[in-house]
């Protein structure tokens, strides 16, 4: 194997490790969401995003708590309630039953800061309505100590 080829392999391996180290805790995670549709506004000008069965987003690890406004999607009064579970880094943190279309706020106390910059919040709904709509998620607030 030539020196040039050895050098190229060494460079590639180093690059791979550097990329993995960066991706362990990248700063852009804080702005990343999944399972949430585009922003909309309700008549009271409250901003919200609709989710289907599962959505996730990130909050800073040094926050003491986070407040998440939630509202179930109801098409008629006879609709079944929607049960929502919320997890912080895969640990169950709250469970709410939304029985009507009014806003509810889930306040979660966050564990002490971890080695990562962010904590992941997952919201899961047990059912969806037409067009894959289950819950409307308002603007969440991270509260620092």
């Amino acid at each position: 194997m030539s020196r040039l080829r050895l050098g190229a392999i060494a460079f590639a391996v180093l690059g791979l490790f550097a990329a993995l180290a960066y991706l362990r805790d990248p700063p852009w995670l804080l702005s990343m969401t999944s399972g949430l549709r585009e922003e909309r506004h309700d008549p009271a000008d409250r901003t919200f995003r609709t989710m289907a069965g599962h959505a996730s987003f990130f909050v800073p690890t040094d926050a003491a708590s986070v407040e998440i406004p939630l509202r179930g999607v109801f098409e008629s009064e006879k609709d079944w309630p929607i049960t929502v579970t919320i997890a912080i880094d895969d640990r169950l943190a709250d469970r709410l039953t939304l029985t009507d279309a009014s806003w509810r706020v889930s306040t979660l106390r966050l564990p002490p800061p971890s080695r990562r910059r962010v904590r992941r919040i997952d919201i899961r709904a047990d059912r969806t309505r037409a067009d894959q709509r289950a819950v409307e998620v308002g603007e969440w607030k991270s509260i620092r100590p």
Partner: peptide, 15 residues
């Protein structure tokens, strides 16, 4: 593997 490594939601539909 990358999703687990970066602590994204491992639900099959994230980034």
């Amino acid at each position: 593997a990358l999703t687990r490594w970066s602590n994204l939601s491992a639900d099959g539909f994230t980034f």
